[in-house]
Design a protein around this nucleic acid. Structure first.
Lengths: 338, 338
DNA sequence: TTGTATGCGTTATCAG
DNA sequence: CTGATAACGCATACAA
């Protein structure tokens, strides 16, 4: 910028003014502008973000801390996030928190967060307390919004899905089909999943359905976890006729395991998932599931993270926004065998 | 930092020295250090990255420009990238280039690239010429490495897979099983995919296999694209008995379409994919495919992008590193019907 | 209408 | 051993 000032034969401050068309008291510059713009073009001028940042300008960076970017559901969320961010002129910096061991590293990412204009936490991560603490302290300066965090957590802005409603819808679908022995599979390590499990328990209790021991299977939230859970279910003395999986990933693992064991879905066993990841439509048979309004939720999260006006707006009590999932009936559910 | 200097009763420059334990000519400071460190802790000091950056420090940011973060294969790549970057202390900033229309936006991301210490381009994007031009100009200052870019492109560091070998291996597997009518499906828009198609054509020509019109299907690289391609193949007067899909995504779409039409895989039709995305193991039936050494390749890319010493090392002529994929035989391939 | 000077938070150089 | 001070690139209050 100094160079371009020299090249155009003006002062550096003038260049700054022109390049940002600063609103001046006395209107504009007549043709000096031309010269400056030309010189800028010539020298392929690129503003230095650091210098701007140092002056207190927003960084246009949005931090994303993702529980597990490997999970197809979160992968989709990242995609949506990056898209939404971009539309607002923001870029996304990624911060894994893949494993426990990563805590310290994730920490570093968060601290670096001072570079970010906002942070969004994708997926419940309360099992990493130090991370959460740090996030809270960061939240004093930059907005931190938690998406799919299970219950609302004090100290953060929250965007959540109505897990209770989603699970209830899924179970209603199954009972409507005639099922009465319905199992549940999920990873209790995550708060959002625990919320789904609680919803399952509330539902079956309310309907007086049978839930023999073993009907609630805990499994890591991976395809392999789904396979294992399915096998455990089939080994039960009183087999369920259907299962509500806490996520599509689990459901897909179960579909695969069923095919492996020669158990026909949906004729002999029904499976319903949760999330509606892109794969869900392509499984064999196509998966009935509960659709998560990912784009809408991510959009809300980005809004809360970057738009200061919206953050404390009315209608978002305590910074919580809740979304409703909807059921998508495909081919993996049917009535139980007579 | 000014505050902490005041608090410790020393000069601000001293604080800087201590906090970075700058190698001094005259050794260190005896117990002033204590005081400063304590004060720093007290005031929860966080270095300002902008100020550092302004002084020419590396940003520890790695730019990633991904062709389509929605694609499960690339999603996995992003994950691996972020992991590898983190292990080296880098963070990843994401830059989509999702659609044509995004070019301008992607551009912005690239320009912002000056903030990055390196850039890795994930997937061929030569269909976006302006983007590539800009990337080249950026490459003058910061290393740009292209992964899965198809042919080596002058002006970039390149990490590629041996597509020819991968496809040949897949086809050899199929012919070994007895297939002679083998189709190919891929999205010709992408350079890496075109390379696979060329490999297919070379192979069938070399073996004198029949390739009636329609055996090479062009389809967008999505599940739906796979479905459409399968239907087109089945409508052919002389149906192929097997197909080599350019990617697992396509293959999975075809598996789904086959089930929909009641065509048994692998009994009536064999499908082989390419990439070995995590889901490939979980399809019904499990997908035979060609495994991409994603982690290794990403690791190499990050190395090249970040480690200046490695960039022009011997053994990497013209900045190109090539990897070999390996076949993974599962259940979606078998001999053709007698 | 445009130039000058100052500060943002750090590091590095140069004196004390 | 440590304190002043310049410089990094930009925006802006102030002077001309």
């Amino acid at each position: 910028m100094k160079d371009i000032a020299k090249a155009a034969g003006v002062a550096q401050s003038t260049v700054s003014r022109i390049l940002n068309d600063t609103p001046l008291p006395v209107p504009i510059s007549p043709e000096t502008r031309e010269r400056v713009l030309a010189a800028a073009e010539e020298l392929a001028y690129r503003p230095n973000p650091h210098a701007r940042g140092l002056r207190g300008a927003p960084t246009m960076l949005l931090g994303a801390i993702v529980r597990d970017a490997t999970d197809p559901f979160f992968a989709g969320a990242i995609d949506a996030l990056s898209l939404e961010a971009r539309q607002r002129g923001y870029s996304v910096v990624l911060g894994h928190a893949r494993a426990r061991a990563d805590e310290a590293l994730a920490l570093a990412a968060v601290l670096e967060a001072r570079q970010c204009d906002g942070i969004v936490i994708v997926g419940d991560m309360r099992s990493q307390p130090r991370l959460m603490e740090d996030l809270e302290s960061v939240h004093v300066h930059v907005p931190v919004v938690a998406v799919w965090h299970g219950a609302h957590q004090e100290g953060f802005l929250t965007v959540n899905v109505d897990n209770r409603h989603g699970i209830a819808t899924a179970l209603r679908h199954l009972t409507g089909l005639g099922h009465r022995r319905i199992a549940f599979v999920g990873d209790p390590e995550h708060g959002d999943i625990r919320e789904r499990q609680a919803a399952y328990e509330a539902y079956v209790a309310g309907r007086g359905l049978e839930v023999p021991p073993g009907y609630v299977q805990h499994a890591r939230n991976t395809f392999a976890g789904g396979v294992a859970a399915f096998e455990a279910l089939m080994a039960l003395p009183e087999r369920p006729t259907a299962v509500a999986a806490a996520t599509d990933v689990l459901a897909i693992g179960m579909l695969h395991a069923a095919a492996d064991q020669g158990i026909a879905v949906p004729d002999e066993f029904s499976v319903i998932g949760f999330d509606d990841i892109p794969f869900a439509e392509m499984t064999v048979p196509a998966l009935t599931t509960v659709r998560m309004p990912v784009e809408k939720m991510i959009k809300a999260a980005v809004e809360m993270a970057v738009d200061k006006r919206l953050r404390n707006a009315a209608g978002t009590p305590r910074g919580l926004r809740m979304f409703r999932p909807t059921i998508v009936v495909r081919r993996s559910t049917a009535g139980p065998r007579p």
